[in-house]
């Protein structure tokens, strides 16, 4: 189904109803050295654009918002001890949570890769 992005620089990659969620390479680069990732608890229900977790770098602390609504079914707890993985691989190994997507129609509220790339040019 591809990867979709929010204006707040989260991404969701959808495979068979499960969305893997993280922050974009652009966001990771802007944050600089990431030192802490607050992951949601498994079983939590998140709503689209509602709070999912938070991320801290040497420079700043930021909230992470859920790109889609649904139930958190898995978290990348390797980030508890190695949050720098988000800098190294923001859109792959640096995924944060997997969400059982409640309503795939919500994806139309997000940007495609091409739209997100255009959006970054406007910032």
């Amino acid at each position: 189904m591809g990867t979709y992005f929010t204006k707040e620089h989260e991404w969701v990659k959808v495979t068979e109803g499960i969305g893997s969620v993280g922050i974009s390479e652009h966001a990771a680069h802007e944050l600089g050295d990431i030192t802490f990732v607050e992951l949601p608890k498994i079983g939590t229900t998140v709503t689209q654009f509602g709070l999912l977790g938070s991320i801290e770098s040497v420079k700043a602390a930021s909230d992470i918002f859920a790109p889609v609504s649904g139930k958190v079914v898995k978290v990348n707890d390797a980030l508890d001890t190695a949050p720098e993985v988000v800098n190294e691989s923001a859109e792959d190994g640096g995924w944060m949570a997997q969400v059982e997507i409640a309503d795939e129609a919500e994806l139309k509220n997000l940007m495609t890769q091409a739209q997100y790339d255009d959006y970054l040019k406007t910032l």
Binding site: T35, F36, E38, E56, V58, A61, P83
Partner: peptide, 9 residues
């Protein structure tokens, strides 16, 4: 010292 990796600011 904080009990964890979060940063006080």
């Amino acid at each position: 010292e904080v009990n964890g990796r979060r940063s006080p600011r």
